[in-house]
Design a protein around this nucleic acid. Sequence first.
DNA 1: CTAATCTCAGGCTTACTGAAATAG
DNA 2: CCTATTTCAGTACGCCTGAGATTA
Lengths: 148, 148
Amino acid sequence: MTETETPPSLTALTTYLLSRVGKDARGRIAARLARRELRMWHMAVLAALADFGPHAQRDLGARLSIDPSDMTKILDELVARGHVDRTRDPRDRRRFSVAVSPSGVRELARLTAEARAVQDEVLAPLDARERERLHALLAKVFAHRDVR
Amino acid sequence: MTETETPPSLTALTTYLLSRVGKDARGRIAARLARRELRMWHMAVLAALADFGPHAQRDLGARLSIDPSDMTKILDELVARGHVDRTRDPRDRRRFSVAVSPSGVRELARLTAEARAVQDEVLAPLDARERERLHALLAKVFAHRDVR
DNA sequence: CTAATCTCAGGCTTACTGAAATAG
DNA sequence: CCTATTTCAGTACGCCTGAGATTA
């Protein structure tokens, strides 16, 4: 009979709960995306391109907090699957211009549906009102994440 | 002039906010603990031992969701710093019994203070009431994390 | 000449898998 | 003989650094 209760010294820390719950959510999403041989960053890239249109690689990374050196491989994989197009920017040939393809848009819709399913699992103990509140509080914290 | 706004397709997902905010919190705590040459798991182990007394390694891992194969190294490091004692359980010599030392208790107090400082940074945009609400909501979600 | 963009190699950490050694 | 506990080697990923090639 193994005790599994989490130490109160830790559960008293909101930051501990945040990082544990966040990791759990991430893990569940990752498990689903893995079935499609994609990961969280692929979804984030598709979402950014769908929401804001074509980006230079560098700007995509800045928006999503993905390191430029990792962006290369992520885009290689999305290009290989036909979800994005990568072309030289004729006005500045150092830059690649990255755009989502119709197939990428469809894939994003599927990935979003998976993410919502995970959300229902993770937030199961909360009713609709509580979910809204949690979302609003997290959005407020997220918006100020840069402030030191 | 680089756009940094996060895609609404993503910020609409509570799970995305959770994982981003959680990662930010974890990163900040990790940065502080690194100054003491420790990491998040060291703190979690000290907290579990301080709150619940001595554990077998295996049970410690089960409580904190740390893989047994990783626990070995974490405990090596805490033993080297004199923060925990590791002795064979005489009733079952397969098991190590792990206990926190007085120096470990003092270290935990320092680490907790650091974590609280990080918490004030991360939750800066929230007032006291909102922080309580966020904590309560996360605790509720955390308590049901095992349910599939 | 200097700076920006992209690419590549590699380090370090966390999380996990599989297998060996020891003990029950 | 089979299981439980700990340990160790190795894989994969995320995150970061530093260096090189190309272009502005």
